[in-house]
Design a protein around this nucleic acid. Structure first.
Lengths: 242, 242
DNA sequence: AAGTGGTCTAGACCACTGA
DNA sequence: CAGTGGTCTAGACCACTTC
């Protein structure tokens, strides 16, 4: 067995997709049709389709069929995230919305405590607000954001924070963010995240971890955003240091 | 059927992994053991394992078994990619190496021509060098990079470019890079990439697309790097504009 | 030789969709 | 109702690893 049957089949279908023979949104042959056309068992036909799903090329809907994915991504600019987010989205022809899931004072876990440079003396106080929010683009959940913000800021701007992105809210209230350190990585959806973002288990996600500092080098916000890899792209401009 | 059997099983195993009951590198129960323990058919046992593979938690080796993945990632700094790459890797305790796959003059495809601001008159000339190279960290292929560089630079520094990263090579030769525009996104391994990077089909990858400009705003290099999402993290520092 | 995972078959029942 | 995909079973053969 040089090349598995299911792979040969999924490769042929894949070519038909990338060559445009199957257009985005179009329906693929049904499992039954594949069984007949390639003279294989249903399991093998299903396996071939699973390969395509796993490559992010198609998705399946029970009772309806298998369809070619649209590949439209929205770009999120890291270099000017402060004020222009909504405008940026509109420019890309996308309606954005935020659903607040959790907003409450908590005693932060140790690594958060460290990045926010909180001293240990107040260990039992509610020194930060924890916010979980869902970012919707065109009514589709695209990212889930978990933010820790210093308690006085969280308390003061609670209402605004629940309805907007964090950085713009701070900027609008005169809290200047001087720099943001961030990392970008990749994971796969676990069952909980797959619920929130309405994606299958294991779907590739991007992880954007950030910490924002004032001009006195005081960290005020840290958190991470899990976003759907098939819907979001991050852009950044790097300038040479002097 | 509220919750599928295969999911229930994979969830239980997942808990045992995240709780540390199964350590990284440790072997999971075999398909046969799962069949007996949960009283399911082999297909269902396999499906449960497939769920875990798909979440990036385990990997399987024919004839040996299923093992918990190590989760060690290396950080690549976008803010100082110029000179410090090798030093950065060493600091993280990682041996880095580069395998040159392709290095040749080509007539660039239209989108590349545009980003490099090449005029159409020379359409049939070999105005750029195309380089494909593999980045190995600890002898493991981690990223595949496809670079287009202006022909005179490519020709002049051919030997160095084949052995080092692109940006450091240019810096060392006095070609100052003033700024880099980049995007970071997510895809999944297609069959070709899965060969190069030695990962299963559909493995999440990061896509780093970049264009470098001189201080006269002349683009000199553009390209994209496909990296293994389970091995590489990108870091960046964003400073407020004035 | 024994144990592991990889591929494949035939067949059953269920859940959902749409005419 | 027919057609679709989702779950599950029992059983076969193969390829690879380890002893």
């Amino acid at each position: 067995m040089q090349i598995p049957l299911h792979l040969a089949i999924s490769e042929q279908l894949r070519n038909q997709i990338t060559s445009g023979e199957f257009q985005p949104g179009e329906q693929l042959p049904s499992e039954h049709q594949i069984m007949v056309q390639f003279e294989v068992s249903r399991i093998t036909a299903r396996r071939a389709i699973a390969n395509l799903v796993n490559q992010g090329l198609v998705f399946s809907q029970q009772g309806k069929g298998v369809f070619v994915k649209e590949q439209r991504k929205v770009t999120y600019s890291l270099s000017s995230p402060m004020i222009f987010f909504e405008a940026d989205m509109l420019r890309q022809g996308v309606r954005s919305a935020i659903h607040n899931l959790i907003f409450k004072p908590v005693s932060p876990p140790s690594p958060i405590r460290q990045t926010l440079q909180l001293t240990a003396n107040h260990a039992n106080q509610r020194e930060v607000y924890l916010q979980k929010k869902l970012l919707l683009l065109d009514e589709i959940p695209v990212a889930i954001d978990i933010t820790y913000i210093l308690a006085d800021l969280g308390k003061r701007y609670a209402n605004e924070l629940k309805q907007q992105m964090t950085f713009p809210t701070l900027e609008q209230n005169g809290i200047a963010i001087d720099r943001v350190t961030a990392t970008l990585a990749c994971t796969r959806a676990d069952p909980e995240t797959s619920e929130y973002l309405d994606v299958p288990l294991g779907e590739p996600l991007m992880v954007y971890c950030y910490t924002a500092y004032t001009d006195t080098d005081q960290p005020i916000v840290t958190g991470e955003a899990l976003s759907r890899g098939d819907r979001l792209t991050y852009s950044v401009e790097i300038r040479k240091r002097d």
